[in-house]
Each structure stands twice: as structure tokens, then as C-alpha cells.
Design a protein around this nucleic acid. Structure first.
Lengths: 138, 138
DNA sequence: CCTATTTTTGCAACTTTATTGCATTAAAGT
DNA sequence: ACTTTAATGCAATAAAGTTGCAAAAATAGG
């Protein structure tokens, strides 16, 4: 596993305290996080707005992806195409647990191919599955 | 096709002016709509809050479903299990056009079965496909 | 290692999206 | 028609996200 500074540099991001700590927080908590999650944890250290901007810069530089979800609150998770040149994170599955409300990426699962109606051109697919996750399943 | 009043009644909703008109608006515009879309159209007639509450009641009573989407703005579309007792609208595909930004339901497409990791239990799946829609595709 | 340049951060103000409480009005049941 | 129950409008408030700008920090170049 690469170290934090290396990862930031590799994504053309300056190395700053905020970024190091937020990146680490994502690595530790392996689930999707909201701005509110980060704010709860970092509010004494970093400004709300800075956290927003950090999320945006991570998003733009391909460190995070945004997860579509009907809650209306933006959720982010780490992309995981470390090393490999062209492993798009574009086609993976997200799982949202109805019990603990956590969203995680199921990186191993591929979204099956699909036959779209005529003239529709697919560029990107995102599958969100809801149910009970392994940790909440008795 | 059933008439508006019948549909409302069938979903245990009182028949009111707001509901009739909003339901009709959804039937006319076959795409997913936001609160803002409705407000633009109805602001002179109905209160913002009433529109919110109408959306919520339609959602709770199974007339509409919410579409997960990373824009952060809630989008709603008609469910279409008219008549048939148990055609869950739970497993269908949404298409978001990158050009016109419209989201539509591809009711004909089924989400393919998927093999989840151990102990994960799926209850619901939602596939969002992004690309170019038939109308924007030259 | 010091300075110049560029980017990031924090603060304040603001916008947009959504919710709550309550009095008034409208719909449905008898 | 009257009573009960639910829906609506208005005002206020909350939550989520954005913008502008000055100060501070990070990188690049000598």
C-alpha cells in the first residue's frame, strides 16, 4: 500500500495537513462518508468549507467518487485503481445497508452488461443495492 | 389508462386540486422531476411547502419513487405497477442523459441477477446508467 | 535556504434545498 | 348538512452547499 503523501502527489494534489488527514480517514473507515461525517470528526481542526473543498478536489482528481443515493446527501468513497493504468472504477456496485445505513463499495462485483434500447449510448453505470450487510446479518 | 382520481383513490390519497394537477404533470412529462421543476410550473398556484408534502405523500403511498442520483437533488418519477398486484418497481433501470440532463425510467429493462458476497441480503436494486439518450443522439 | 509564485485555508456572508408548527380550509364519512 | 379528519398556506427555521476575499501554507526557482 502506498503512503498518503505518495497518493496525493500521484493525483496532482499538494500535500497539506487537511488532505493527509482526510485521506487517512477514508482509508480507515472503509465505508462511504458524507461531509457531515468528516465535519463531526474534524470540526475542531478544520473549517467546514475547507472540508467541502477537499472533497471537491479529491473528486476532481480521481481520488474519490460520489455515490448516487436517494438520501439527497452526497456520499464519497475512495477509488481503488491504485497502480493499474486503466481500471475504471466506473462500473462497480454499491451496497447500502438498511439497518446500519452504511454504504460500501463491492469492488469485486462487476455490473453485468446490459442491452439498452436503440440509440441510447451508455458511458457509465452505477448500481446501488439495498439490503442487509454482512455485519448486520445475524 | 386509469383516470387521475381513480389513481389517487387507489393509493389511499384524498382527491385534491394539488394532487390531481401534480399527478397529471408527472403523466405528461414522462421524465423524472425535481421539486424545483414543479415549483417553476406551479408556484403561482400552490405553495412550495404543499408541493414538498405532495411529493412526500405520493412517495409514501407508492405513486412515485425517488431516483438515486449524485446531483444531490431529489428526483421523482411515477411508479408503473398499474393494475398488476405485485410488479415491484424495485428493480428497474434509470437513464440519465449527460447532454439534456434528463432522467427517465427504462421500465422494460430488468436489472440482471447478481451474486452478492456471503451474508449480504439484497432487498432492492437500482441501476443508474449515464450516457446519451435517444433524443440527444444524432 | 531564501524569495517569488501559486495554491490552500479560514472566516463571513449567502444561496439553495428541505422541514416544522400552527391556524385555516377543504375532503370524506355518517 | 354536520362532524371528523386530513390537506393547505404562511412564517419561521434548519440543513446542505457555495462564493469572495484576505491570510497562511506549499511548491518552484535561484
Amino acid at each position: 500500500m502506498q503512503n498518503l503523501e505518495h497518493i496525493l502527489k500521484h493525483h496532482n494534489l499538494r500535500i497539506t495537513q487537511v488532505r493527509l488527514e482526510i485521506l487517512q480517514f477514508f482509508q480507515t473507515n472503509k465505508i462511504a462518508l458524507t461531509h457531515a461525517d468528516l465535519e463531526t470528526f474534524f470540526s475542531k481542526k478544520f473549517d467546514r468549507v475547507t472540508i467541502y473543498r477537499t472533497l471537491t478536489s479529491f473528486l476532481e482528481n480521481g481520488l474519490l467518487h460520489k455515490i448516487p443515493d436517494d438520501s439527497g446527501i452526497a456520499k464519497y468513497a475512495l477509488c481503488h485503481h491504485e497502480g493499474t493504468e486503466h481500471t475504471h472504477d466506473d462500473h462497480h456496485v454499491h451496497f447500502k445497508c438498511k439497518k446500519c445505513e452504511k454504504i460500501e463499495c463491492l469492488h469485486n462485483l462487476e455490473i453485468p452488461k446490459l442491452h439498452l434500447p436503440k440509440k441510447y449510448k451508455m458511458e457509465h453505470a452505477n448500481l446501488l443495492i439495498e439490503g442487509i450487510c454482512a455485519y448486520c446479518n445475524p
